[in-house]
Design a protein around this nucleic acid. Structure first.
Lengths: 120, 120
DNA sequence: TAGGTTGTTCGATGTTCACCGAACTTCGAA
DNA sequence: TTCGAAGTTCGGTGAACATCGAACAACCTA
């Protein structure tokens, strides 16, 4: 629930905010993981930073409109806002993801096993 | 001449550096101006910042590989590295420019009249 | 050669950012 | 109801950034 300014409207998104959010390798790694369309929770991201830092990065991604978050009980589910991004900035996400894949940007972000990987 | 680290190699460019360079509205405005493929010098950019600040922003763009610079006498000519960018990060520049045009990002950057506007 | 033009560099300032550990809130489960 | 798990928030730190004015170097031109 926390975080009243979560999930900004599509028309509030700005290009420079999106690009700034994607200018950090760790955040690109997070986005690449979420690119499968599945929902992820905090603990499913295997990142080499403290959990407060991860919380910060996920907040940046959400504020820029890159993720959709849904809180359920004590945990929140995150998912890429691919359709909204595509509407607002056509092809941008695909193009960045393709380049990130080619260069393996943010490969230090992994997926913790034992959690759901299926697209709901 | 100054600036030994100018015009980095294509294979040295990183995605996150390019995105970081494009995460500033003023720099996006500069890139949009140069999108016509012409060469620009310092004084042709009508920007609302001090010339030292403009120098800084143009250095950031060059360091990220977005521009090609050629020094001639007392002035330097800048041009978009469109082909190199397209090779390294296919469609990225076009996609960002299209989004920037739609949103009119960096419109506070103008073109000083009286200078060359023709593609050489 | 004396000036003006062009662009860089140098502090200096205030802001933002990435990062951490620790304290805190919420909630589900035992 | 007590405990642990999931995230958030807070204070703090060092680095990076945007910005300015002023001083500087390089060059062309009158």
């Amino acid at each position: 629930m926390r975080h009243a300014d979560a999930n900004p409207d599509v028309d509030q998104l700005t290009l420079t905010d999106v690009l700034a959010a994607l200018s950090d390798p760790l955040r690109v790694g997070l986005v690449r993981l979420m690119a499968d369309g599945a929902e992820y929770t905090f603990g499913e991201f295997a990142v080499p930073v403290a959990k407060s830092t991860l919380s910060h990065h996920l907040k940046v991604l959400n504020a820029a409109g890159l993720t959709w978050r849904r809180d359920e009980g004590t945990r929140c589910y995150l998912r890429l806002r691919r359709d909204d991004l595509d509407t607002r900035f056509p092809h941008l996400l695909d193009t960045v993801l393709a380049a990130a894949d080619r260069d393996d940007v943010g490969s230090h972000v992994g997926n913790h096993a034992g959690h759901h990987v299926t697209t709901p």
